[in-house]
């Protein structure tokens, strides 16, 4: 890797880190696991003046059960998130999606908060965050701590609602309680490549019907997208057992509801997929994700 020159600081505490970031100015970047930032540096697509390394700050590490939500420290590695019993028990959708992030090497280095703060709509975690209405805890030297709801966190492509002097401390993942089924459906070409489209689905079932659904879409626009139209359409839909290999003829209300999955999205065009194909995939994959979640 031959990046342009930059300064590097590794503060010992979160407070020092916040100070360092404030002092370093607009062109500084926060470095944690480096799995998103270092490729940008390598390609010289990013020229930060300095890097504030928060990867080893103990305040940013670990998973805590905090009653009505689970707190995941921003610098907790994907590997640690996937293997956390608290995450597995209380927010399985997070565990499912995190397990699909890139490859084992990246999951050992990359961090939960880093991936979210990178705000790449092709990343797997942003769609989960919006589906579950997570809250982002940010801290700065001047403003102290504040919470940003997931619905406001992803401003634009690679642009989180973090000010230049703010460090993401962690994410609060609400516990949804009993009755929910989950599934993360990821469509990609090779095991370690980005999702062409991903669907994060949480479904609350009651008496054979879908009572409530939460659906986030990966890579269907410049930010992660909440498939609100599908959520609405699914409310009260009976969960039918599909005929194996069938699905032709007969009413299929879940499939019909998922036909709305691409509504209001503006998916990107790239080498792996054009927008119309992504819209098609969003519909098919949302249907699959909802069925899997409903039957989980």
């Amino acid at each position: 890797m031959i990046p342009a020159a930059f300064d590097y600081v590794r503060p010992q505490t979160l407070e020092e880190a916040a100070m360092a970031l404030a002092e370093a100015g607009e062109d500084a970047k926060v470095l944690a696991g480096g799995q998103s930032l270092l490729p940008l540096l390598r390609l010289r697509l990013s020229y930060p003046s300095s890097l504030v390394d928060v990867g080893r700050l103990s305040e940013l590490h670990g998973v805590r059960d905090e009653g009505d939500h689970v707190f995941i420290g921003a610098a907790t590695t994907h590997y640690d998130v996937v293997h956390s019993p608290v995450v597995q028990a209380e927010c399985p959708l997070v565990a499912m999606a995190t397990a699909t992030v890139a490859d084992p090497q990246v999951r050992h280095r990359g961090t939960f908060g880093g991936s979210l703060a990178h705000a790449d709509p092709a990343g797997d975690l942003p769609a989960v965050a919006v589906a579950l209405d997570c809250a982002f805890v940010a801290r700065s030297a001047s403003g102290g701590e504040r919470e940003i709801p997931a619905s406001e966190f992803f401003v634009d492509y690679l642009e989180p609602a973090l000010r230049a002097d703010e460090i993401l401390v962690g994410v609060k993942v609400p516990k949804l309680g009993p009755g929910w089924g989950y599934h993360y459906e990821k469509f990609h070409r090779t095991a370690q490549s980005w999702a062409i489209v991903g669907v994060a689905a949480a479904v609350r079932r009651s008496n054979g019907s879908i009572e409530e659904a939460r659906i986030g879409l990966t890579n269907m626009g410049p930010t992660p997208v909440r498939a609100s139209a599908v959520e609405e359409a699914l409310r009260g839909t009976p969960i039918t057992v599909p005929v194996p290999g069938g699905g032709n003829g007969g009413p299929d209300p879940i499939r019909d509801a998922c036909g709305e999955a691409a509504a209001g999205t503006s998916p990107p065009a790239d080498l792996h997929a054009q927008p119309d194909y992504r819209r098609h995939l969003a519909r098919v994959l949302t249907h699959r994700a909802v069925l899997s979640a409903a039957r989980a």
Partner: peptide, 16 residues
Amino acid sequence: LLTTTMADYLIPSAAD
């Protein structure tokens, strides 16, 4: 050339 990185020029790994 649009395929200048391994995110664009895909090669399979053992997992694929």
